[in-house]
């Protein structure tokens, strides 16, 4: 037995994706201050997303939404022991560099913030910290993975409290994966072109029948039933944004969504935690939205 020093590598695809693997089955909660972060951790969140305003407030306030103040992120890092994620604007690699310098555990290149580049996403291979990106379909998911994303989440329609878009995105991604899995090898070239996705990734999905990275769900989840729904539709974990701290009783809602995520196949357990929860966030009908965040990113 000898000690092995130095052949260590940091930032490999395996350690980046590995953290996402560890979050599977869990709930990642948006928090805007250390008090909320503590509530999230106490309730059993597997990670928190540190941001200045939850999506429903960003939607209400308008203006340019940017990366959060580093001080707020650091205060949250000092408060909880679970991973702390933070958002950078699409294409804003300098914000991402700052978040990496702050030692955040995951960067979300997010459509919830105002995009900084309407052509290019961040080259995520250039970073040691792993990235999560949103997607509305398989082509978008594979383009993000091609750029180095280690985790994909549905975009949903953030800040609405309405799960309909997240369901659409999950179903679309899964239907497109099934299509690839049943395709003949000679069809994959044309399918890759149609998806606008890198051919090697299309071939990998066709072979394995799943995304090369975990698939989580985000955007509009606001009840334990929503969490159970998207997990049954194939999501491996859920991000809850406005749904917790815009509800009547955030502590109970946070605990209930964690329980529902753990026992998502057990309707009795989900019923129990849904009972007497108080009102979920009010929510918006997506057809009446002026700004669709899911359309950001390409």
């Amino acid at each position: 037995m000898s000690s092995s020093h130095d052949p260590s590598t940091i930032g490999s695809a395996l350690v980046k994706r590995g953290l996402a693997d560890m979050l599977r089955g869990g709930v990642i909660m948006d928090v805007v201050n250390p008090e909320q972060a503590k509530i999230a951790e106490d309730a059993g969140a597997v990670a928190v997303m540190a941001l200045e305003r939850v999506p429903s407030d960003i939607r209400r306030d308008g203006g340019v939404a940017r990366m959060s103040d580093p001080q707020m992120i650091q205060e949250i890092q000092a408060t909880v022991t679970i991973p702390v994620m933070a958002k950078a604007r699409i294409g804003h690699f300098a914000e991402a560099q700052i978040l990496q310098a702050l030692d955040v555990d995951y960067i979300d290149e997010s459509e919830v913030l105002t995009p900084a580049d309407e052509e290019n996403h961040i080259d995520k291979w250039a970073f040691t910290v792993p990235f999560v990106c949103g997607a509305t379909n398989l082509g978008e998911a594979l383009r993000r993975i091609g750029e180095g994303a280690c985790l994909i989440r549905s975009k949903g329609e953030a800040g609405t409290g309405n799960v309909v878009e997240a369901v659409r995105h999950l179903r679309t991604i899964n239907a497109q994966i099934r299509r690839l899995a049943s395709a003949d090898a000679s069809e994959l070239f044309s399918l890759a072109k149609d998806l606008g996705a890198p051919l090697p990734l299309v071939q990998e999905v066709a072979r394995t029948g799943k995304l090369p990275v975990p698939l989580f769900c985000a955007g509009g989840i606001s009840t334990p039933a929503d969490a159970s729904l998207v997990l049954q539709l194939g999501a491996e974990a859920v991000f809850v944004g406005s749904g917790i701290f815009k509800s009547d009783d955030p502590v109970r809602m946070a605990e209930a969504i964690v329980e529902a995520a753990t026992h998502y196949l057990d309707a009795g357990a989900v019923a129990k935690v849904s009972t007497g929860l108080g009102a979920a966030m009010k929510g918006l009908e997506t057809a009446s939205l002026e700004q669709r965040l899911a359309e950001r990113g390409w």
Partner: peptide, 25 residues
Amino acid sequence: GRQIASFETPVEVEGLGTVPGVFIR
């Protein structure tokens, strides 16, 4: 360390030889 320090390294296990070690937080 935090995620940024997560690493892979070969680990020498008594009786097994070298196994891949994936250390995440």
